[in-house]
């Protein structure tokens, strides 16, 4: 087992390298980070020139990548602009745990992500729990009554959910439950933010503000997941050992709980495990619309400012999460399913 994990890690590292190179090349397409600096008018030319030099943005892309990767404390930089390098670099590089500083706030990327990540996680974890729970219930229910009215209804609805652009769903929910409910004098939900400053950051406020974004995320994912659960349960139920159990007179409920569900759960675990890190990304639009101060919004805000250390940080974090979850999923899978031997 541990050799397997080691081998997988060994594969993951070059993969992350490739990802970082692809991303870094794409980052070159972004505008000039010192083009506006967030001010309403462009900065003075001499300030731009100096900032590019001091921030290392005048270096060729490969040097910027090397700095990002292994730091620049082994070389001298020209900070005073006389063309002669004289100051020791201070970057350590991502390989030594230095994710760089945001070009916008000048603060460490990891610190800034750290401030936002919990907000994204609280949204994601809640949504994920609801998604898993509801899709298991719905999927199982329709699998046990295949082709019934309920099953067909669920199938139709799941396709609708699956086909809906996230922002359209979000807007519709907002329009109905926030705008119209208020218009009709009904208790309405807040549209944006994490809490109402007039009330404060109470758990109740948090829950109220989470309803709409969590519903948005859940509706779209439940659609796909419940279909998946349904088809894996159906597949298991049609297999010989289940039929045997049934023909031997084992109670139907027992068959479902003892045999069908655990076996059908395996591919489901895989799916969830592989999807979780992408959920972090999927929140971009949801966080944008509901003004949730999470990582997705951080990404969008800093995209507009071409803050590439920040963007690289967020994207690499997600990529690492994807790779790690792939390994974890494989390992969990092998632990749960005795038929699988790693190595």
């Amino acid at each position: 087992m541990s050799t397997y994990i080691l081998r997988r890690l060994g594969q993951a590292i070059p993969q992350l390298f490739i990802i970082s190179i692809i991303l870094f090349m794409l980052m070159q397409a972004f505008g000039d980070p010192v083009a506006t600096l967030g001010a309403r008018t462009p900065p003075k030319p001499e300030d731009k020139e100096r900032l590019r030099r001091m921030l290392g943005l005048d270096q060729p892309p490969y040097m910027q990548y090397i700095t990002w990767l292994v730091g620049n404390d082994w070389q001298q930089l020209d900070m005073d602009g006389d063309g002669v390098p004289e100051t020791n670099g201070s970057r350590k590089g991502i390989l030594r745990g230095d994710w760089g500083n945001s070009l916008v706030t000048r603060r460490p990327v990891m610190e800034m992500i750290g401030e936002r990540l919990p907000n994204t996680l609280i949204l994601m974890v809640t949504a994920e729990i609801i998604i898993i729970g509801l899709s298991l219930v719905i999927g199982l229910y329709s699998a046990l009554r295949p082709y019934s009215f309920f099953d067909n209804l669920i199938t139709g609805l799941s396709f609708v959910g699956f086909s809906m652009p996230v922002f359209w769903l979000a807007l519709s929910l907002m329009y109905l439950f926030a705008v119209n409910f208020r218009r009709w004098g009904l208790p309405y939900l807040p549209t944006v933010g994490m809490f109402d400053p007039a009330v404060g950051k109470t758990p109740w406020e948090l829950i109220k503000h989470m309803v709409l974004p969590v519903s948005t995320l859940a509706i779209i994912s439940i659609a796909g997941y419940s279909r998946f659960v349904r088809s894996s349960v159906l597949e298991v139920l049609s297999q010989d050992y289940v039929r045997t159990a049934r023909s031997k007179g084992v109670a139907s409920r027992f068959v479902v709980w003892k045999h069908a569900l655990p076996n059908a759960a395996l591919p489901f675990i895989t799916l969830i495990g592989l999807d979780i890190p992408f959920l972090l990304a999927g929140a971009v639009v949801t966080e944008r619309i509901f003004a949730w101060p999470g990582m997705g919004r951080l990404f969008i805000d800093h995209t507009e400012r071409a803050d590439f250390p920040m963007l690289m940080g967020i994207l690499m974090l997600i990529s690492i999460a994807v790779v790690v979850f792939q390994i974890i999923t494989d390992v969990v899978y092998s632990l749960v399913d005795p038929r699988i031997r790693l190595n």
Binding site: I19, L23, F30, A281, G282, V284, I300, I318
Partner: peptide, 10 residues
């Protein structure tokens, strides 16, 4: 492994 929405934006 790079979420596609990010790829799209970039």
């Amino acid at each position: 492994n790079i979420p596609s929405l990010f790829l799209l934006i970039i």
